[in-house]
Nucleic acid binder design. Structure first.
Length: 494
RNA sequence: GGCGCCAUACCCAAGUGGUUAAGGGAGAGGUUUGCAAAACCUCUAUGCGGCGGUUCGAAUCCGCCUGGCGCCUCCA
């Protein structure tokens, strides 16, 4: 039996218990990218958040169907293509490929269906047809408009009243709030035949048509960025609920908060204040980005800064450190007996490890509280480190940390964080940071060898001088029993 | 002008009626170390933007004010 959960729905503006359309099943539609440029870290937040939502639902026993679309024909695509002298559909194809790489690089699992507008034209035309037939849309000069006044419930999601909207528009629309379902063909634009002549879909109709086809009317969760609430999602509701179906279009609406840059403004393509995923991923492990997103609640605004990802990487390293410590412990026996013989620190690790899954799930089942879930993980990490610092217990404590290791697996499964081996993580960090910081590992190794020689002959001044040089380059040395290791400093001293 | 959201320590951030206000980072001190790093321990908000109110009791509910953000045009 899937476990119940609560979530905040924009529609009701409160947290409510989830009731599925079909018992045991969750259908979710997330608005994807308009593919006219590379995705930036603001987009990535939405897709990581919904990836984690879907992973958690599946881990909770829900049979989950996840649909995320590509908008591959649109004004912005056409504008960009015309600027670059490229065919719009070719350009869109290129950025779909780019997006797929970014999603894979981020560790997001692919949705079950990734429909495209250009592959959904018949459904779109059919839906527009039913809207025209029902008196909710009208044709004018080869374009078709949705008639907002024909849908009295319009504004229910966003709280907007049609008469209070700002509008400078007039054109051929009957009402300023009316929006395009079908745009008549213009020279140089992609077009498809339709009962209203050649043209292409308007922006909003695609999601209605694709959700309808792949999930059916009245599906469970509709997700997207907070900036899509109006008009995009409002218009989706209007189209879908006027096209001959009964009941609401989607049962719950989830909206993720936006990334903000210094000064509090949101990150946006049009504002030019963005960092792309493909700029960042070569420099930092994907898991650092995931942790950055998951450390705050998905609905809150999330401040972006140059130190955000290095700091998240530091947090990640802390989790891996604890996991590595836990994995290094040895010993056998019955966990309770071993813990009892080892003392309070061992009992704490055992208790926290055993309690983790329940606490983690409780946090996630309460509107996907990833921040609280992570706090539980850090509490466990500290307890493990405290235990492992005692060399005497380290040889016996393995049974005590088994539940904690299971906790790390749950974290990896649900968050896609701490999913590598600690060794692979360190290697990954070293490779990406070395490249980003312009440090040659061979040079570091040579320096380290020279220092080892100096230390062997107790030439401390020389050894310290070498370490200072490495430190200045951002390389931190860790002397251990088995020799010296090095890592790269994650956050620059301020 | 309309609609909506937010305000918790130096920074990020959970908590939305009831024991000592989670967690992470930064900072200070200590343990450890040849010296460091990592790790561990201790400390860092008698207070949760301000002012009123409801209540036995409020960061948590209500009102007003101040500040900020999002949307109303493309936007994750």
């Amino acid at each position: 039996m899937p476990s119940p959960f609560r979530l905040y729905s924009t529609l009701s503006r409160r947290v409510e218990s989830f009731v599925p359309r079909t018992p045991g099943e969750v259908s979710i539609y997330v608005c994807g990218m308009t593919v006219y440029d590379h995705a930036h870290v603001g987009h990535a937040r939405a897709f990581v958040v919904f990836d984690v939502v879907v992973r958690h639902l599946r881990n909770s026993g829900w049979n989950t169907r996840y649909v995320r679309n590509y908008t591959d024909v649109d004004d912005k695509i056409i504008r960009r293509a015309s600027r670059d002298g490229e065919d719009p559909l070719t350009l869109a194809e290129r950025y779909i490929a780019s997006f797929r790489e970014d999603m894979a690089g981020l560790g997001n699992l692919p949705p079950d269906v990734e429909p495209r507008v250009t592959a959904s034209i018949p459904e779109i035309i059919a839906m527009i047809g039913s809207l025209v037939a029902g008196g909710h849309a009208y044709e004018d000069g080869g374009s078709v408009w949705f008639s907002v006044p024909s849908f009295p419930a319009y504004g229910g999601l966003s709280g907007q009243k049609v008469d209070d909207l700002r509008s400078d528009d007039s054109g051929t629309k009957r009402h300023p709030a009316d929006f395009a379902l079908w745009k008549a063909h213009r020279e140089g634009e992609p077009s498809w035949d339709s009962p209203w002549g050649p043209g292409r879909p308007g922006w909003h109709i695609e999601c209605s048509a694709m959700a309808d086809r792949w999930l059916g009317h009245g599906f469970d969760l509709h997700g997207g960025g907070l900036d899509l609430v109006f008009p995009h999602h409002e218009n989706e509701i209007a189209q879908s609920e006027c096209s001959g179906h009964h009941g609401p279009f989607a049962r719950y609406w989830l909206h993720n908060g936006l990334l903000t840059v210094a000064g509090g403004q949101k990150m946006g393509h049009s504002l030019g204040n963005f960092v792309t995923i493909r700029d960042l991923l070569p420099q930092f492990p994907a898991e650092a980005l995931r942790l950055y997103y998951l450390q705050s609640h998905y609905r809150s605004p999330l401040p972006w800064s140059d130190t955000a990802i290095p700091e998240a990487l530091g947090m990640l390293a802390r989790l891996y450190e604890a996991r590595e410590q836990a994995e290094s412990l040895e010993g056998t026996g019955q966990a309770d007996a071993v813990a009892a013989s080892l003392g309070a620190d061992a009992l704490t690790v055992l208790d926290l490890g055993r309690a983790f899954e329940e606490r983690f799930r409780a946090a996630m089942d309460d509107d996907f509280n990833t921040s609280l879930a992570l706090a539980h993980a850090f509490e466990l990490a500290r307890a493990i480190n405290r235990l492992a610092a005692n060399k005497k217990v380290a040889r016996k404590a393995r049974p005590v940390v088994e539940p904690a290791l299971a906790a790390f697996r749950l974290l990896a499964d649900t968050f896609g964080v701490c999913a590598m081996t600690p060794q692979a993580f360190q290697a990954d960090v070293k490779a990406r940071r070395s490249a980003a910081m312009g440090i040659d590992p061979a040079w570091v190794d040579a320096q380290l060898a020279a220092r080892a020689e100096a230390r062997a002959s107790k030439e401390w001044a020389l050894a310290d001088q070498i370490r200072a040089e490495l430190d200045a380059a951002g390389v931190v040395i860790m002397d251990g029993a088995a020799g010296s290791e090095w890592r790269l400093r994650l956050v620059s001293p301020t």
